[in-house]
Design a protein around this nucleic acid. Structure first.
Ligand SMILES: [Mn+2]
Ligand SMILES: [Mn+2]
Ligand SMILES: [Mn+2]
Ligand SMILES: [Mn+2]
Lengths: 218, 218
DNA sequence: AAATAAATTTAGACTGATCTAAATCCATTT
DNA sequence: AAATGGATTTAGATCAGTCTAAATTTATTT
């Protein structure tokens, strides 16, 4: 059996590998799991011994199929629990992450599959992230940061890049909800901030905020 | 913060103290938490330092109010999760204990109080055990083992002493359900087995089984 | 290609939870 | 009151996960 710690490292490596295109470095992992590089090195040896990662000193790591499978299973559990908390227990989308960090380590395949059924097989979690199915199949998001959109027009708010409480609460305050149509009215040259409309309301968003808002083109 | 291990020791001491009338010994705890006496001694020192128990070498331990409060909170979580698993996720009463052993350590008061509300504040868990309220108030069972009943007559099946899968599955097979009326027809002198009726069906139960079936007189 | 800086690993240490074996305490029996 | 045996504690060790400081490797700059 894998420890919670091992599961957290695998999840971190998986997450980092999505943006870095496969190879993940020691320092990135240390940052992600909130520990020191020396500690990470020890763990990489262990994960490598268990054949969850390919590891060569100084060269970074990649997940093996076995490691990826475990990581995705943890992600599945995390996101299903988040849906449960929001849909059934009245939590807000900015309140669920820390609890899901704990619940994702509960071990029982039957539990998680029954939960999935109880929630009626949701495709996305409260932050717009896709939920892997019981076979580990996950349809990665095709959405892009609002800050990267070059042309004015209609978009759908489909997810967030930054999952921090502060950012999520800020979005709630603006009134934006997942699935809303966003119209990109203008991109300000000066500071790359953007003017958008949602529900006939106009507002400005900083470049920083726009980087963390994911949209789908329609 | 207390570790899972500390929580398990406190829960074990609480459980043992209910039957032993307060004082609990090292070996009993070792048996309950499935470890060795030497390990227990180490933990008792730690729990004593934290003022969760009163401990004097060789004299056994008692829970302090602080320790009892923590233990009861764990019991509350355990039993609420068991209700959730049975009522919402279609688990059988013999399948929930091990999962609840994990879920009872999830830390979030808001989570457990919301779960309580979602379940509509159940008073008993799937095994008939009372669920402490959010203030730690618990109405201890007044039920007695069927084996201790001296007179023939009607009784209500209100709980089990033995929570093992084997015993629970055996009861399911007999068709007895919590809340059923049991009529005690006869106590066999020879081996202390009993003849009962439930739903017009007669059956014999061994003394061993009768010891583990809890009933209320009506 | 050498110097320098950054990233990574190694060495050595600590803590919490566990174990076995040995020592000690206590209750019961003679 | 001494002997005995069971319960309990102490001593010493191990393992996982973590740290700091030092050594090493790799990448970047001159
Ligand atoms: Mn999350
Ligand atoms: Mn999420
Ligand atoms: Mn249970
Ligand atoms: Mn129960």
């Amino acid at each position: 059996m894998n420890s919670f710690t091992e599961e957290n490292y695998l999840k971190a490596i998986y997450k980092l590998s999505l943006s870095s295109g496969g190879v993940v470095n020691t320092n990135q992992i240390a940052l992600q799991v909130n520990t020191k590089a020396a500690t990470v090195t020890d763990m990489l040896k262990k994960l490598s011994d268990k054949n969850y990662i390919l590891y060569q000193k100084y060269q970074g790591v990649t997940l093996t199929e076995a490691g990826k499978k475990i990581a995705i299973h943890i992600v599945r559990k995390h996101r299903l629990w988040e849906v449960f908390l929001v849909e059934k227990l009245n939590f807000k989308w900015d309140e669920v992450h820390d609890i899901a960090e704990q619940l994702e380590h509960i071990r029982s395949d039957e539990l998680i599959d029954e939960l999935d059924k109880f929630l009626e097989f949701p495709a996305f979690d409260p932050h717009g992230d896709p939920i892997p199915d019981k076979h580990g199949k996950i349809t990665e998001l095709t959405s892009v940061p609002l800050a990267s959109v070059k042309h004015k027009g209609k978009l759908v708010f489909s997810g967030v890049e930054d999952h921090s409480k502060a950012f999520l609460q800020y979005l709630s305050k603006t009134g934006i909800t997942l699935g809303d149509t966003i119209t990109l009215n203008e991109i300000i040259d000066y500071d790359k901030s953007v003017e958008i409309s949602i529900k006939n309301k106009k507002m400005f968003l900083s470049h920083e905020a726009a980087k963390n808002i994911l949209v789908e083109k329609i």
